[in-house]
Amino acid sequence: MSLIEVKNLQKIYEDDVETPALNGVSFKVEKGEFIAIMGPSGSGKSTLLNILGFLDKPTKGDYLFENKSMNEYTNDELAQIRNKKMGFIFQSFNLLPRTNVFENVKLPLVYSGIEDNLWDEMVNKAIDAVGLSHRTVFESTKLSGGEKQRVAIARALILKPDVIFADEPTGNLDSKSGQKIMEIIQRLNEEYGHTIILITHETYTAEHAQRIIKIIDGAIESDVKVEHQHHATDHFEK
């Protein structure tokens, strides 16, 4: 059974004029895969990610998450899945202002229904996993870009989601911090077995994945395995 299966996804934005963003996209993602979705801006990759992350609904076509169509889930169930089975990493980090690292990473737990006496340990573990233990009580606004993104990653992985969506996670970072982020994301996939769906327009970043889906004008142009997968650690020996 595939973790994710999309069948002929179409998305048309209807503001003043009809703007097709996705035009019949179909593919499957198996558990444990690391997929990069590539494409120039305006190609529809962000729209696709929003649909995959249950943040948006397709105009046509079907999206099966764990073999169940998204139309069969209620809004609250979708929120539950976003909370427990999905993790999100954004280009602009989206950390809460005036809030320290610990509180930011804790956020998904608030909506999880997990007893709050377990929270501290889980949060510290997640912060540890991204190597930010020394920054736990730092206010998020005082961190560097790379550190902010690591906080966001810790927040995304704290509930051990099945799939982590990363939307241009290195887009706002310098190449060194970006490299570090890619290293962490790769490790999440290889060591912890999280399925990763990464959106990027940089070929180099995309080649950290096992498979690249190229999208142009809302349709899949190619869907290929990466022959020579980059390993962030190759270039970043410690």
Partner: peptide, 16 residues
Amino acid sequence: TREIGLRKAIGATEKN
């Protein structure tokens, strides 16, 4: 607005 979007993305329901 962004905070609300984030909270919803990571699992907050409308009721939350």
